[in-house]
Design a protein around this nucleic acid. Structure first.
Lengths: 136, 136
DNA sequence: TCGTTTTTTGTAATGATTATTAAATACTAT
DNA sequence: ATAGTATTTAATAATCATTACAAAAAACGA
């Protein structure tokens, strides 16, 4: 646990982010819960460990992580943003029945089109929607 | 104009949607403005032609069109939804500087992965973000 | 034409996100 | 260490897109 804390702290320092307790806890949560949690999910779970936690801190921290490129936001639906630790290339599938979001691996590097030759591409997202096997 | 009106009316009837004046106007607007307008843009522009128009009607109509598969919603950002008449397969590029959304053609049918073999895929979206040539 | 259903309109309610400000904490230099 | 400064957190208010709801208007059918 102490070692893990050091690792997370170092990861934040690399990104020029001061490793406060709350920030480390959020990063830890995102590492352990790679299930595309929403702000509410992160807040509710962490609040049990940190009773004084504020939802503003979650928003601040996530926006900070976003700007520094630590995480990605998934806007697969228009009501609630989901957050994702950046790992390898993968797409997201959202089940329209149960609402769960699934990963699937996809090589985003193959997506290049001459039409965007003059564009600077910073981020690529692939979103599928449909029904998952359990709901079918 | 009269003929066009009939065409739009027929298109709605095919989808079992009663072709009211407002609905035809919204469909007409989406056909003519394939620039991914937001609700506000549609509302403001059509309000000049239809002074009594309500924004609720825009929301109602767009949701109706969505359910019947006439249009698609683009959630490339979390603040404002954009709407798109369904044409051919294409992806969307959003410039993070000027906010404009560009189309680029991409064959979504090639995106199949064994990982999703048990899933029923209804909809595929490809969103890119970056900087457009004019802003570079 | 009357009664019923559908559509539109306007406003209120909801809910996620941001803005703001004060309290708490961490940091620096003497 | 300590005083002073900067940063971070917390709590609440404000914003804004979207939905819910109810009444007015329009369309429809017998």
């Amino acid at each position: 646990m102490e070692l893990l804390f050091k690792d997370l702290s170092a990861e934040l320092k690399n990104r020029r982010i001061h490793p406060s307790y709350q920030r480390i806890k959020v990063l830890d949560y995102l590492n352990k819960n790679q299930c595309h949690p929403t702000v509410d999910q992160i807040f509710k779970d962490l609040q049990r460990e940190i009773p004084t936690l504020s939802k503003s801190t979650i928003y601040n921290t996530l926006n900070l992580f976003l700007k520094s490129g630590l995480i990605k936001v998934i806007n697969i639906e228009n009501n609630d943003a989901h957050y994702d630790i950046i790992t390898k290339n993968h797409g997201h599938f959202k089940c329209e029945s149960c609402g769960k979001i699934f990963n699937f691996s996809i090589d985003l590097n193959t997506f290049t089109t001459e039409e965007l030759s003059g564009f600077k591409i910073i981020d690529k997202n692939v979103y599928f929607k449909g029904i998952c096997p359990r709901c079918l």
